[in-house]
Design a protein around this nucleic acid. Structure first.
Lengths: 94, 94
DNA sequence: TTCTTTGTTTCGCAACATAGAAACATTTAT
DNA sequence: ATAAATGTTTCTATGTTGCGAAACAAAGAA
């Protein structure tokens, strides 16, 4: 069920940040690891998860593997997601 | 961190369906349980989770507790969510 | 008062996700 | 041929989530 998986994919702050970065341009496993202070192992795992889900494209060049957004609709989803987060933040009575 | 919690709240198919129903009108714990074939215990738990997150309003009348959408922005989020799910479904090469 | 309806909380279990470590593969440089 | 850089996979430990069962609480009916 893709809808279950999508939710689980978005369920990680790191993966949402990764998607955010990939909106601008494709990035390698290494660059993502650098950017978010992840081990390359974990960077690879997160990207693979997003890729398996069908959200990313991949392209290998030399020893690097680049990932990019495959589904443009994800941009709006993230935008709406952030909007709700903002509202929740303002209402914060936690 | 509200953004972490929101993702986890959406991470359940049942909770997304509940939110979907609440778009139309407020519903009691009992009604939700009925509608989705949940035990009342679980219905209560799911609704509490969404409420604690700040997504729902609540109103008690007699022995019933009604929940309703508090954040209208959630509608668009769900809509965009479903859109991405649809695209993923069409691309299904899983 | 006693019973029924509606709802909540706690406990324990099974399933799943996450992160680190180690081993391995591939490509490029020396 | 050897070493370094970039990624992936497997194993393990830890933590989180969801669900059922049981106990409890409050409101209304009999």
């Amino acid at each position: 069920m893709p809808d279950e998986k999508l939710a689980r994919a978005l369920g990680s702050r790191i993966r949402r940040n990764i998607l955010h970065s990939l909106i601008k341009k494709e990035l390698s496993v290494h660059k993502i690891a650098e950017q978010f202070s992840l081990s390359e192992v974990n960077s690879s795992k997160h990207l693979k998860k997003l890729y398996d889900l069908g959200l990313l494209n991949t392209r290998t060049e030399g020893r690097e593997r680049f990932y990019s957004l495959k589904i443009p609709e994800i941009r709006l989803l993230i935008k709406e997601y952030d909007k709700v987060v903002e509202v929740l933040g303002k209402n914060k009575m936690v």
